[in-house]
Amino acid sequence: MAGRIVRWGVVLGLGGLWWWSVLRLALVPDAGALEGAVAAGGWGLSLLPVHCVPKARAMRRARAPSGRRGAVVRE
């Protein structure tokens, strides 16, 4: 339970930092490189392929019976 709270705190804190930097870049004429770096870094993280799985697991899913989409075959 405590791990979940900490994880959500970190996610919300970093999300708030990202939004602060984006809004500051858009609204404040003297926004600097720090805001740009935070905004670009957060945007770059959104491009990570977070739905990747190991090849063996993907192959098991590909061979799964067609009765249920995404079913995992246990070997």
Rank of each mutant, 00 (worst) to 15 (best):
G44Q: 07
V11W: 09
L12Q: 06
A58C: 03
G13Y: 12
W19V: 15
A71K: 13
P54H: 13
G41N: 02
L25A: 05
A56Y: 11
G70F: 05
R7N: 05
V50D: 02
V11R: 15
E75H: 10
G70S: 09
R69L: 12
W8P: 00
R24K: 13
V53T: 08
G3C: 03
A56N: 11
V72L: 13
R7T: 10
V50K: 08
P29R: 14
R4V: 02
A39W: 00
R68S: 06
L17P: 00
A2V: 08
L34F: 10
R60P: 01
V73Q: 08
V22H: 02
R68L: 12
H51L: 14
I5G: 07
A58D: 11
A40R: 06
G67H: 14
G32P: 00
L17A: 12
L25T: 04
G36P: 00
V38G: 03
L23C: 07
L45I: 13
H51M: 14
A40S: 06
R60N: 04
W43F: 12
V53E: 13
A56W: 13
L47V: 03
A31S: 15
V10P: 00
R57Y: 11
V10S: 03
R63M: 04
V72G: 07
G42Y: 03
R74N: 05
A64G: 07
L27T: 15
A56P: 01
V10W: 01
G41V: 01
G36N: 04
W20M: 04
E35W: 02
P49A: 13
G3P: 01
G42D: 04
L12M: 09
V53W: 13
G9C: 08
G36H: 00
A2E: 14
A56V: 13
A64K: 06
V10G: 00
G41Y: 01
V22N: 02
L25W: 05
G36Y: 00
G41E: 00
